[in-house]
Design a protein around this nucleic acid. Structure first.
Length: 353
DNA sequence: ATGCATGAGGG
DNA sequence: CCTCATGCATA
């Protein structure tokens, strides 16, 4: 559909991305074993990718399905619905209009009134709890950019983008702490910023975090919204998804490092407040959710995985071709590839170590 | 716990 | 367009 944009990006990067693959424990999706040999297609990826490539990928996809994986879906015809409907809930929640562009508007820096949904009976009332925790993790000067797997020269590379610029400045911290050179000459043990111990420390922290969080009777979602109350410059709230991913280490290494200080600060505050006060009344829940999610059917997904194994970064043309072949919207395919690439780079340090 | 998506920032 | 950090909707 929709023809093609005459844009043809030949960004055939050698192999900037390390073939790091998790495989440590995840195992929920169908990817992971998609690392197929992919014979001699390095030479004509662009030249004659047409039939051969697509055919090849599909063949592989077919073979793959025969082999079967432990996870077979009952069957899912691609349900591609995009529906962002209205928000019946007219509560005063400040939350986002799920209508896309305005999801996260206000930088909670100035105003932090988020009336989120709660459903724990006696969890801590973050709003007040963490209100006085304004500067726990002020800073920790340390200088040294890029972790181990980053672009060594682009230290300003992925900066303060996104809404709440949660990392706007966290990125600094992240970059700084990423280097073993500095120091964490603080208390002496488990400071807010001793990332020098690399992935191991993170893993341990994530584990501890989860355990204590549960102990406090707080959900991932609650942690996310409570973060805004920390009013750490540049740090707003986060979603349940992100907290979950942090705990399960399924974020990029950089992201993990950037989030650690914030979550640690929250944890400390929450525990302190917990001891102090039993709890508070708590709020009610305002619910609102509408948007539907596109669902790619299993067969299509298998094909995509096969294509991905052959060429993780298909050009616009190829994406269009694949999209048409699988009868999917081009954008869906493009996004799918982007997401696959991200997954491939998840934490679970599987490379460069 | 995860799949698909949005958006910022950078080319 | 891509990469990245994140989020909504979902299974």
């Amino acid at each position: 559909m929709m023809t093609m944009n005459g844009k043809q990006h030949f960004s055939m990067h050698p192999a900037l991305h390390e073939p790091k693959y998790p495989g440590l424990h995840s195992g929920s999706e169908g990817m992971r074993r998609v690392c197929l040999p992919a014979p001699q297609l390095q030479g004509n990826i662009f030249g004659g990718f047409d039939e051969s490539l697509l055919a090849r990928a599909e063949a592989l996809a077919a073979a793959d399905s025969i082999i079967s994986h432990g996870k077979s879906h009952p069957f899912k015809p691609d349900v591609t619905y995009h529906t962002m409907s209205s928000v019946p809930c007219t509560s005063a929640s400040s939350s986002s209009s799920t209508t896309g562009p305005i999801s996260h508007v206000p930088s909670t820096i100035a105003s932090h009134h988020h009336l989120h949904h709660h459903h724990l009976g006696q969890s801590l009332e973050a709003g007040d709890l963490l209100d006085h925790l304004s500067s726990s993790l002020a800073v920790t000067g340390m200088g040294a950019p890029e972790p181990s797997g980053m672009t060594a020269s682009a230290h300003h590379h992925q900066h303060p983008h996104h809404h709440l610029q949660t990392m706007g400045q966290l990125h600094q911290a992240m970059a700084n702490m990423a280097h073993p050179h500095s120091l964490s000459v603080h208390g002496g043990m488990a400071c807010i910023n001793d990332v020098e111990s690399d992935p191991r420390e993170l893993e341990a922290f994530a584990e501890r975090f989860k355990q204590r969080r549960i102990k406090l009777g707080v959900t991932q979602a609650d942690v996310g919204s409570a973060l805004a109350n920390l009013k750490i410059p540049g740090v707003g709230s986060l979603s349940q998804s992100t907290i979950c991913r942090f705990e399960s280490l399924t974020l990029s290494h950089n992201n993990m490092i950037a989030l650690k200080p914030v979550l640690q600060a929250w944890l400390e505050e929450a525990e302190a407040a917990y001891r102090e006060k039993s709890n508070k009344p708590d709020l009610f829940n305002g619910n609102e959710r509408k948007r539907k999610r596109t669902s790619i059917a299993a067969p299509e997904k298998r094909s995509l995985e096969a294509y991905f194994a052959i060429q993780p970064r298909p050009s616009s043309e190829k994406i269009a071709a694949i999209a048409e072949k699988l009868d999917l919207k081009k954008n869906v395919v493009r996004v799918w590839f982007c997401n696959q690439r991200q997954k491939q780079k998840r934490m679970k340090y599987s490379a460069v170590h």
